[in-house]
Design a protein around this nucleic acid. Structure first.
Lengths: 400, 400
DNA sequence: AGGGAGCCTGAATCCTCAA
DNA sequence: GTTGAGGATTCAGGCTCCC
C-alpha cells in the first residue's frame, strides 16, 4: 500500500518473487514527444519525456521492466500492458518473448470518441492493452454485459439438443413441450471496450498528462483480481490505478520516477472518496461508490444518489420538493433505519421521507402509522422472495 | 477485370510495375487450422489450409507476397492488410520493414458482435486491418460519419478563433455576436469501424469460410480510390473485394490458388449482390423497444430485459428458474396485461410470473387471487404518488 | 501425453404462420 | 395480399471429454 519514487527497473528489485496478482502498466508509448499539461489552477505542471534514441533503446528498457514484472507475479497472476499504435507491435513481440506466445490472452481495444483534427487519414480513436498471463492457471473473473437487442432472449433460454443429423434443435419433452434452459447472466465481456476518453474539461482530471479513466482500471482490476489481492503499477503517474485498486479493496504498490507524480498519487490516495468527489460531480462519484443493488433501486425510484454515511442515500424530487430516500442496510433493523433517516432529514426541513425495506424482521409489529411522514416501501426482491416462499409452502400443504 | 488462378507469388509477377491503386488482402491469419464450410444448398464445400510449419515460414511467405504488392502499386497507392490477433504484430513488423514505418497510416479495428462461447477470458470481437501507403503522396478520401449524440451541433457550426493566450474560442464579430462557421459534414471517419459480422444466416453468405461483408470492402475502396481506379486482391477467396470494386465502378484483379474459389468469384461477379444488413439499416437503437422507465424497473428487479417478445418484458432468475416479468403498459388495464403475460408464458412452461402495476384503475376490484400464479407488484412511483396524494388530502381535511 | 469429436454459445438473419 | 411477431437456424470459437 505504498507509492515508491524511482526508476522502476531499480525499485522493482525490492519486491518479492511471486507476490503480485496483477501488474497494469501504462509505460511511455514511444511517441517521441514530451508530454506536459498545466494543472487546473495553473500553478503546477506535470510532464514526462517520451523521447528515445531508437526503438531498440526503448525496447531494451521495456525488456528490463517486463522481466522484473514477470518475476514478481504470482503463478495465477496476469499483466496488462497499455500501449498505442506507435510501438504496440514491437511490445507484443517482446511480450511473446518474455511471457511466451501461449500465455497471450487478449488484445484489448480501448476505444473512445475524440475531437477531430483535420489530419489526412483516419482519426485515431483507440489504444491497445495487451493481456498476458504468467501461466495457464491464471485468475479470471467473467464480467457480463447486456445481450444485443437483436437477440431473442426468450428463445435462447430454451434448452437445446442435436437431432439425428447432428443439427442443433430445441429440446422437447415427451409431450412435445419446450424444455427451459439454465440461468442466463448476459454476454461475457468482449475485448473491445468503449469507455469515454477523459474530456479535457472532466472534473476527474488532476492535471496529469495521459491520465486514464478510473472506469478502465476498475474493469481490469475486477477481471484479474479478487478482493484483497495485490496490484502493481510500475509507471503509476497520477495514480489512477492505485485509486481504482483502493476503491475496490485491493492492495497496491505504485512506482514512478517523478517526485511530483508520487506526491500527486499520494494526495489522491489519502482520501480517495473525498478527494475524488471534490473533483467529480457528487452524482457521478456517488454512483460509483454505491453497490449495484442500491444504485438500481435508486434508479427505479428515479432518485438522485448522494454520498454515503449521511443517513440519506438519495433524493427524489416531486414538484421541486426534495424527498430523502434511505435504503435499509444489511446490518440494521427497520426501526434503526427509520430513525437514521429521520435524523438526517430533520436538518433538511423535509416533511416527507421514503424508506426502502430490504429485509423481513422477526417481529413484524412495526407498521407505517397513520400520521407518520415516512413511507415504507418493500424492495421488489423482498416481495418476490416472500411470495415464492408462501407459494412453495402452500403447494406442499395442498399436496399432502 | 479478371480473376486469376494460381499462387499469388507467381501470378503477381505478370502484373506491371506501378499499375495498381489499391491492394487489399485477406491472407491466411496463421490460425494453424483448416477452415472449411459447406455451401448453403449443401452440394459444394469450400476449404483452405492455414497451417504452417512455424511463424518464420509464414512470414517468409508473406514477405514475398508483400514485396510483389509494393512493386505493382502506384506511388499514390496504398495497401490494406487484414489480419487477426494470431499474427498481427509480426505482420506489422514485416510491413514496417517493407513499406517503412513512416508510411504506416492506420491500424484499423474492425469490431462486431458475434456468437459467444464459454472461453476463459475475453470474447474476441475484432480484427485488425493495417493501412500503409507506398509514399507520402498517397490518395485519401475523407469519409464522414454522424456526430455523436452528445455533441452540441450548434457549437460545431460556430467559427473559432484563438484568443490572446492562444486558447480556442468562438469567433465574434465587432458587436460580440457569434459568427457562423463553414458547413460541417460530420465527424471524419475514425480507425475503429463497427460493421456487423456476416451472420451465419445472411443471404450474402456464399458458403466460403472467412467471407467478409461487402460493406467493409466498400469503405476501404472509397477511402483509397476514385472511380475507375484499379483494385487488386491477391487472396480473393469468394471475391468480396471484386464485387465491391465492381459495384463502385473500379477495375479489379483477383488472384486465388483454389480453382473453386476462382469459379465462385467469377460467378458472384456475374451478378454482384449486396445484401442490406437489417441491423445497419435500422441501427441498434432501432431494436430497443423499451423506455428508460421500463429498463430501470427491470434493473431494480434484477431481471434480464427481453426485446423481442410482446408479452414478456424480462426474465428474473430464482434458483436457476426463469420467471417472466411484464410491466403494465400505458394503454392497457391490468387485466389485459395479465392476460398477455400468461399467454406469452404458456409456451415457455413457466409456472410463476410477475406483473408490475404502473397505474391505478377506476375499479379496483381485481386483486391477486389466492391460487394465482401471477404476482402483481406496484411500481415504486405508483406507491409514492398515491401516498403523497393521500397525505395531501388528509392534511387538507385536518386543517379545515 | 495429444488430438479429434462433441457440446455450449448468442447474434442476426431467414422463414413461417397468424391476423 | 401484406405485415409483423416470433420461431428456426447456423457459425474464420473454444471448451471439455474421451480415446
Amino acid at each position: 500500500m505504498t507509492v515508491l519514487c524511482g526508476d522502476c527497473r531499480i525499485v522493482l528489485q525490492s519486491i518479492n518473487d511471486s507476490s503480485i496478482d496483477l501488474v497494469y502498466m501504462d509505460p511511455p508509448f514511444f511517441t517521441q514527444k514530451t508530454h506536459a499539461l498545466v494543472n487546473r489552477d495553473g500553478n503546477a505542471s506535470y510532464s514526462f519525456e517520451d523521447t528515445w534514441e531508437s526503438i531498440e533503446t526503448y525496447l531494451a528498457f521495456m525488456r528490463e521492466v517486463l522481466i522484473q514484472c514477470k518475476r514478481v507475479l504470482k503463478d495465477t497472476g496476469s499483466i496488462f500492458v497499455h500501449c498505442d499504435r506507435s510501438a504496440s507491435h514491437h511490445l507484443r513481440v517482446l511480450l511473446d518473448q518474455i511471457f511466451g506466445p501461449e500465455h497471450f490472452q487478449s488484445e484489448i481495444i480501448w476505444t473512445y470518441r475524440r475531437w477531430s483534427n483535420s489530419k489526412k487519414g483516419l482519426l485515431p480513436a483507440h489504444q491497445t492493452i495487451y493481456f498476458y498471463s504468467k501461466t495457464e492457471n491464471f485468475k479470471f473473473n467473467v464480467l457480463f454485459t447486456d445481450y444485443s437487442p437483436t437477440t431473442n432472449i426468450d428463445q435462447i433460454l430454451q434448452a437445446r439438443a442435436r437431432n439425428e443429423k447432428g443439427k442443433s434443435v430445441y429440446r422437447r419433452d415427451q409431450h412435445g413441450n419446450i424444455v427451459a434452459g439454465k440461468e442466463k447472466k448476459g454476454v461475457p465481456l468482449s475485448d473491445v471496450w468503449y469507455i469515454p476518453f477523459l474530456n479535457p474539461k472532466a472534473k476527474e482530471r488532476v492535471g496529469y498528462p495521459t491520465q486514464k479513466p478510473v472506469l478502465l482500471l476498475e474493469r481490469i482490476i475486477k477481471i484479474a483480481t479478487d478482493s484483497g489481492d495485490s496490484v502493481l503499477d510500475p509507471f503509476c503517474g497520477s495514480g489512477t490505478t492505485l485509486v481504482a485498486a483502493k476503491l475496490l479493496g485491493r492492495t497496491y504498490i505504485g512506482i514512478d520516477i517523478s517526485r511530483e507524480a508520487v506526491s500527486l498519487s499520494e494526495e489522491r490516495l489519502r482520501q480517495p472518496i473525498k478527494s475524488e468527489s471534490q473533483l467529480l460531480v457528487v452524482g457521478e462519484e456517488g454512483f460509483r461508490m454505491k453497490s449495484n443493488y442500491e444504485r438500481n433501486l435508486l434508479k427505479a425510484l428515479d432518485a438522485v444518489p448522494v454520498e454515503r454515511n449521511s443517513g440519506i442515500d438519495g433524493f427524489l424530487f416531486i414538484d421541486e420538493q426534495p424527498i430523502p430516500v434511505r435504503i435499509q442496510k444489511d446490518d440494521e433493523d427497520i426501526a434503526t433505519a427509520r430513525q437514521k433517516l429521520k435524523a438526517a432529514s430533520r436538518a433538511k426541513q423535509c416533511s416527507s421521507m421514503i424508506l426502502i425495506r430490504t429485509k423481513t424482521e422477526n417481529n413484524l409489529c412495526l407498521f407505517e402509522t397513520e400520521d407518520d411522514d415516512v413511507l415504507v416501501i418493500d424492495a421488489y426482491d423482498l416481495i418476490i422472495r416472500s411470495w415464492l416462499h408462501k407459494r412453495k409452502y402452500r403447494k406442499k400443504t395442498t399436496v399432502s
